[in-house]
Design a protein around this nucleic acid. Sequence first.
RNA 1: GGGUGAUUAGCUCAGUUGGCUAGAGCACCUCGUUUACACCGAGGGGGUCGGGGGUUCGAAUCCCUCAUCACCCACCA
Length: 854
Amino acid sequence: MNLPKVYEPKEYESDIYALWEKSDAFTPKNRGNNDTFSIVIPPPNANGNLHIGHGLTLGIEDIAIRYNRMLGKATLFVPGADHAGFETQSVYEKQLEKEGKSRFDFSREELYDRVYDFVAENKDNYESQFRRLGASLSWKHYTYTLDPKIVAQAYNSFKKMWDEGLIYRGERLVNFCTFHGTGFADIEVEYKEEASHLWHITYPLTDGSGSITVATTRPETMLGDTAVAVNPTDERYASFIGKTVKLPLMKREIPIIADEFVDTAFGTGAVKITPAHDPNDYEAGKRHDLPFITVISHEGKITHDMPEDYRGLEVLEARKKIVSDLKEQKFLEKEEDYTHNVGHCYKCGTVIQPLLRDQWFIDMQPLTKPAIEALKSGKIVFHPEVKKQQLITYLENLRDWNISRQIAWGIPIPAFQNLDDPEDWIFDERVQEETITVDGKTYRRDPDVFDTWFSSSSWPYATLGLGSDDYKKFYPLSVMETGADILYPWVSRMLMFGLYNTGEIPFKTVYLHGLVLDQHGAKMSKSKGNVINPMEKVDQYGSDAFRMGVIAGQSAGNNQSYDENRLVAARNFCNKLWNVARFIEDKIGDDFELRHNPKAETPADNWMLHKLQQSIREISDCLDNYRFAEASEKVYHLLWDDFADWYIEASKSNLNPGVLAYGLETILKLAHPFAPFVTETIWQTLKWEDESLLITAQWPTEPKANDKEAAIFEEVKSLVTEIRYIKASMKLGHTNVLYHRGAQLLNEQRQLIANLARVKDVVEVEDGDGLHLTTTAFDCWLDIDAATAESFVRELGNQIEQQQKAISQLEGRLSNESYVKNAPNRLVDETRDQLESAKQQLQKLSDEQARFSK
RNA sequence: GGGUGAUUAGCUCAGUUGGCUAGAGCACCUCGUUUACACCGAGGGGGUCGGGGGUUCGAAUCCCUCAUCACCCACCA
């Protein structure tokens, strides 16, 4: 035998991958039709190793790709890596921290160069990890998110939006992380419930006629209050409107204004207005033309314009001091416990400060409209479907997008500001220059970079190159497969930008996978130490087993706990396949000539072809509908239950090399998308195979089978199963003989039945002796002695009880007139048949019981 | 405050438009040197599908309601 007993993935995987690459198998090429299929991978962040989620992503995508390649389509699978701006810079900063340094030790340019080198190593690392996972990627198309074509596309998008008035710059409240020193988009802020207090502060009226009390969770911002607001309908405060109060701790006079946004039921019904540090107050400040006073700096400290006592204090220190000062000066009316939502930096957990800043914004309204229309018209299929509606709802409520980031690592924003006229901004791509001269005026580059998602939004066509041959052929992409957690930050924006830049939807299908959780259902994270390294698992079980194990039981959109047992099961599957191949190669030899229409001679042959026919149909159907886990389960059972346990066992009695070889060939093809390495490895050992590579072989088509013959083997199966059951429960050896009366089939299948059921012989008799079988339709007996048979009576009793229950259930159903009238005829007939055979079986069982219990 | 998803065997999970006796892998029990495979073979046990109500001839599946968990969204100071 050519193959060793146990499949050792490590011995073959890298050679197989090299063989595919050398054969140019990953390059898109049509085989037999003109269809195309394209996927661009969601580029992993090039700042670490692949995690298990990447394994899942690549697995799912590669299954879809390999299946479609075998269908003969020109298949493009584009690899890539993400510079992941802020993400990567913060990873790098952590590394600097370990070295006792920080980003402030470097200029932006130096920092950029250092991160660049840091990322370069990881990028190479990824390539080898993608290969180990077996992903059939077109390496020529490899794209990094800082490649010139990606940057160029980002600039084109920016320019187009600038020209069409979608981009604007303005001083707005932005979500600012004072630790990382950068602003964020709304979607990036993480809200958490926090226990705090609601402080009631008394503001005395300037005219001395009394006071008004406001309630706030952020007393420190009172330094920047420029008004107190009440609801115009609030009778309690009607007489206060238009008056002024004297702001405690500050020597400023501020007005009491009326605004409908104030909720009369909350707190005291009077709100302090700090336009520079609260989104609501910001809006109110605009409406009422109030001054904007900045109290908190970008470093998270009280600014130098504030009273000396508070200058330079951290926010929380300032809060403490202000509360105690207010108390001391009798301005604090009360302090009550209060739990509310507070925004945090999703990376470092620092409380996000709403701060005023000049930033670039995109007016989203013109972009969301076509996207919503496209979604509503059903142009894009979603798996799971529910995510489509969620996305529509999200888009309907979307606000403008802040795309400026105050970090070094990213794509510079191609905008320059006139040194003499701050309002004068121009678009220019010479971002390597700090200043440029245009028309005799000097302009300075905006030091900010784009939000990474801004450039990623064009990923589906920027990778192909807008207008290129690849673009014409492969755009829109067939599928966008990515994590359900980035539906909003990524999928939504790709959709909007795709429609905006290309006039077309960027992908026809969206497949979203859930998170891979740890074995107890908790999120995996480095800090919890429950992260699983996919490469370790590939080492341990093989790449195929890793892939099959991770996708097993995974359904679209749902999170799933990691279960190592599934990898074990998948590894065993690969080994089973390996041994099936060993057996078949040994049986039929190297000089065998493969025929693609195998000749079925026996019922078993027809049964096997029938199973293959059915499986090809079902597995293709699952794959067409993105039900990967179900498809792989079907392959598993086709190989293990049908082919190995029944057909191969049967073939030991009656060898048909044609069907054996055809069965193996078909199963290798069906299994290939799920287990590419082991299937290709086996394929390469098959001397009789005429297609040189499995990866580019044709997906199987359904063979013809004689269903009547196939049904005969089903009969044999149930006969054999019954005999095995009796033998096992009676603990019999292999010396019994099976007698039958006038069953032609049993004569024909004599040796097969004897072998499968492990009986000594199958003999035709005039009248039987021993235990009469009850499940099979044939008239047969197992020759067991009276004593053993009697002990089987109890077992018969159990079966009789079961049959009686089944019969009464079926009779109940049939006696229900509404059932007979309303249920489809097919079902009613089926119920009648079932009742009939249940009655027959009960009769046999009772006869046997009567015979043995005398 | 609103929304979405989950709840099925000891564990991890499937179950497509309502229709055979609710499935899988692993775990468990019994037996087994059988022409490839102990990463194996044969047989078996185990679930009132989270609770309650409803629609229907028929519900894990549709509707209502409650509970628990998870996630998302929202400017209530």
